[in-house]
């Protein structure tokens, strides 16, 4: 049985919920009261993850923290189609690792901007938004070239963990005051993600409109 220590508004938790749903996995959500109680700093939670962060996955006693690690683990289990973590295609695997790194960069910056806008945390918001725009420009260019090459996904021929890792933080950029309008290839890619069978939204991320 898979159990996910989770918070609805966490972009990194959403990554894991999204992949679990795309894979059609049943799992149990264990909410962690982050705001304003900070249950993630309590002894029981720190015993689970010494970094004090959600998400944490517990797969029948195998406990794993760090959202990208959880994605790689979930996608590498026997029976899961190769596309999600393309371990037999070295180039796609390399690109997957590259875009997982990118997701970490993006989440660091967007979450700081979002915590500034949402939680009144102190930050140099101008610098954060400018860094976020530089990253989104790189992503938009990459996606444009993959579309020109007849693909539509970050790492391979099909959607994979790289897409799942980047998607939440691209969608949450607006909550940090970062406009996504200048990036048309990103808009097409987020629409493709939203139309994947098994896609689930999170609070603040809306599903694609039906019937198109």
């Amino acid at each position: 049985m898979i159990r996910l220590y989770d918070h609805e508004l966490s972009g990194n938790c959403y990554k894991v919920r999204l992949l679990l749903s795309l894979l059609g996995e049943q799992y149990e959500r264990v909410p962690v009261d982050l705001h304003p109680i900070r249950e993630n700093r309590t002894a029981w939670f720190l015993a689970l993850n010494p970094h004090g962060q959600v998400p944490v996955l517990d797969d029948s006693g195998f406990v794993l923290c760090e959202s990208n690690a959880i994605l790689v683990y979930l996608a590498s289990r026997p029976g899961v189609p190769d596309q999600w973590y393309p371990r037999n295609d070295v180039q796609a695997l390399g690109r997957t690792a590259r875009w997982l790194e990118f997701a970490t960069r993006l989440s660091g910056i967007i979450s700081a901007a979002r915590n500034h806008d949402l939680m009144q945390e102190q930050a140099d918001i101008g610098a954060l938004r400018s860094k976020a725009r530089s990253l989104l420009r790189v992503l938009d260019e990459h996606l444009w070239f993959t579309e020109q090459a007849g693909r539509g996904w970050l790492a391979g021929e099909a959607p994979g963990v790289a897409d799942v890792a980047c998607f939440p933080w691209v969608m949450l950029s607006g909550e940090g005051g970062i406009d996504r309008l200048p990036w048309p290839a990103i808009a097409r890619w987020t629409d493709r993600v939203k139309r994947l069978p098994g896609f689930v939204p999170m609070s603040g991320v809306f599903p694609a409109s039906p019937g198109l």
């Binding site: 609805e8 508004l9 249950e39």
Partner: peptide
């Protein structure tokens, strides 16, 4: 359950905010 009430409220308001 205080935690579930708070979680529900944040989910709903998180939809309103954007």
């Amino acid at each position: 359950n205080e935690k579930s009430v708070r979680g529900f409220q944040q989910l709903i308001f998180g939809q309103d905010r954007p």
